[in-house]
Amino acid sequence: MRKVTVPIDMASEQKTILGIFSKRQLIYLVTGGAILYAYIPTVFQFFSNLFVGFILSVISAIPILAAVFILGFLKKQKLHLNYDKYFLIKIGYKNQIGIWRKGSKPKDWMVNK
């Protein structure tokens, strides 16, 4: 049987938006931009001084920008997962922990009396 090397990486997500962004990344960018568009003008209007308003607007935008960058663009290299999928797995882990037993008959301490 012949083996043929595929010239592209079939395991990574496809960059469908202009060859730069994937759909998942575009959703994070649009959501982060909408959140910033919603609250930055109110932060800017709290202060009469333009310079102070601008500085505090930039400071208040940093956490949203960091979250969008981490969730949308960074990967956990050890597990080959994007951080959003990694955090979803971590959150769902608590639901998977339980008391596991072998057999169909419950133990005495498991039965409510």
Score class of each variant (00 low, 15 high):
residue 77 Q to H: 10
residue 44 F to C: 03
residue 96 Q to V: 02
residue 53 G to N: 01
residue 21 F to I: 00
residue 33 G to T: 12
residue 113 K to L: 12
residue 59 I to V: 09
residue 17 I to R: 02
residue 30 V to K: 10
residue 78 K to H: 09
residue 78 K to F: 11
residue 21 F to E: 03
residue 28 Y to N: 05
residue 38 A to Q: 13
residue 69 F to H: 14
residue 4 V to A: 05
residue 11 A to R: 02
residue 39 Y to R: 02
residue 35 I to F: 07
residue 81 L to M: 10
residue 62 I to E: 04
residue 86 Y to M: 13
residue 38 A to E: 14
residue 40 I to P: 08
residue 73 F to K: 02
residue 28 Y to D: 06
residue 8 I to W: 13
residue 85 K to N: 15
residue 60 S to L: 04
residue 5 T to V: 15
residue 84 D to I: 13
residue 100 W to T: 14
residue 25 Q to F: 12
residue 12 S to F: 02
residue 65 L to R: 10
residue 95 N to C: 02
residue 26 L to M: 13
residue 86 Y to D: 12
residue 16 T to K: 08
residue 90 K to Q: 03
residue 83 Y to A: 02
residue 1 M to D: 02
residue 73 F to C: 01
residue 14 Q to P: 05
residue 12 S to D: 11
residue 6 V to P: 01
residue 107 K to V: 01
residue 17 I to H: 04
residue 109 W to N: 08
residue 112 N to K: 15
residue 65 L to Q: 07
residue 87 F to S: 05
residue 22 S to T: 11
residue 34 A to F: 09
residue 45 Q to P: 02
residue 102 K to R: 15
residue 13 E to C: 01
residue 84 D to F: 15
residue 34 A to T: 07
residue 107 K to S: 05
residue 66 A to P: 01
residue 35 I to K: 04
residue 68 V to K: 06
residue 51 F to A: 14
residue 36 L to N: 03
residue 113 K to N: 13
residue 5 T to F: 06
residue 29 L to F: 01
residue 21 F to S: 04
residue 86 Y to K: 14
residue 16 T to R: 14
residue 16 T to G: 14
residue 32 G to K: 03
residue 53 G to W: 00
residue 72 G to W: 04
residue 99 I to E: 12
residue 69 F to R: 12
residue 18 L to Y: 14
residue 95 N to L: 10
residue 53 G to D: 02
residue 12 S to N: 09
residue 7 P to N: 00
residue 55 I to D: 10
residue 23 K to V: 05
residue 98 G to S: 13
residue 89 I to C: 04
residue 44 F to P: 01
residue 42 T to F: 15
residue 1 M to C: 03
residue 112 N to H: 10
residue 101 R to M: 06
residue 35 I to L: 07
residue 11 A to W: 05
residue 29 L to Y: 03
residue 2 R to Q: 15
residue 76 K to I: 05
residue 23 K to P: 01
residue 69 F to Q: 12
residue 26 L to R: 09
residue 53 G to P: 00
residue 20 I to Y: 02
residue 103 G to C: 03
residue 107 K to W: 06
residue 74 L to A: 04
residue 44 F to T: 11
residue 98 G to Y: 08
residue 40 I to C: 08
residue 107 K to P: 00
residue 40 I to G: 06
residue 17 I to A: 04
residue 89 I to G: 11
residue 50 L to D: 13
residue 4 V to L: 01
residue 15 K to S: 01
residue 16 T to E: 13
residue 24 R to T: 10
residue 105 K to Y: 12
residue 62 I to C: 07
residue 49 N to W: 03
residue 63 P to D: 05
residue 86 Y to W: 14
residue 109 W to K: 13
residue 53 G to F: 00
residue 48 S to F: 04
residue 12 S to E: 12
residue 26 L to W: 14
residue 69 F to K: 12
residue 95 N to K: 11
residue 92 G to Q: 12
residue 82 N to Q: 09
